[in-house]
Design a protein around this nucleic acid. Sequence first.
DNA 1: ATTCGTAATGAAATTCGTTTCCAAGAAGAC
DNA 2: GTCTTCTTGGAAACGAATTTCATTACGAAT
Lengths: 133, 133
Amino acid sequence: MSDIISGATRNTRQRFEVLALLDEIADFRTPQQLHALLRERGAQVGLTTVYRTLQLLQDAGEVDATRLPGGEQLFRRCGASHHHHLVCRSCNATVEVRGPAVERWTERIAAEHGFTEIGHTLEIFGTCSRCSR
Amino acid sequence: MSDIISGATRNTRQRFEVLALLDEIADFRTPQQLHALLRERGAQVGLTTVYRTLQLLQDAGEVDATRLPGGEQLFRRCGASHHHHLVCRSCNATVEVRGPAVERWTERIAAEHGFTEIGHTLEIFGTCSRCSR
DNA sequence: ATTCGTAATGAAATTCGTTTCCAAGAAGAC
DNA sequence: GTCTTCTTGGAAACGAATTTCATTACGAAT
């Protein structure tokens, strides 16, 4: 059980490459961007494998996923505890934010309406100070 | 200025059909579902036009848009004031919820990090009481 | 009511992100 | 090394959404 990704049974070079890249990057990236970055650095990994690895990592809770307003997926390696993101519209710079009050609010609102198995998505978009110059 | 949609200059049969349908439906629907419903009732409206009309309505603030976890668009006719949605995962039943405290929280958090032109998305997903039986 | 300019339509083609297919490749157990 | 089978990756498929462009028809002018 020395698997680098729980749920996967084999440790392949490609999975190491994807994980290594994610470890170096702070902000969110699309699967395509990650794939392009891997090619740039000479890592031979297929786009399909990038998608599959990200899916595995997401299932294992190793990466954090969100979506651009357009619907495109974004991934980022991150800590385990629940949080939300403040994302720059133009450069994708990301700040993790925690909002316990919001979590409690969603739980309460949903319960008031008889909903169960509650989940939520909350993303804040804006222009970061660097980009707004 | 007797336009049914501000921003559009002509009132076409197709736009009336889409609006009429939206007025009858309470919950969110995808553009494709709306198109199918129109065809079922014999209304001859192209899928392209459904997409375009929904876009116009969204720009005019006449409909409310969100996305399924998978990224697909959802539209619904709704009131003008800003609010969020509590959506049932299985039947798309929707409850509008307002959370002024959350709005203020996002503004504050974003400002603290130097972000401007702030927007946010917040959707709560769950299983409604009817579906959880 | 007829004409006319142009906005709007819609079927087909295109785009683009993502998933599936499947033959070839390579972990890892023995 | 051998074998099993999980994994890979290019190609093809897929599906939502958008664009194209010839046709249609709204609605203002006459």
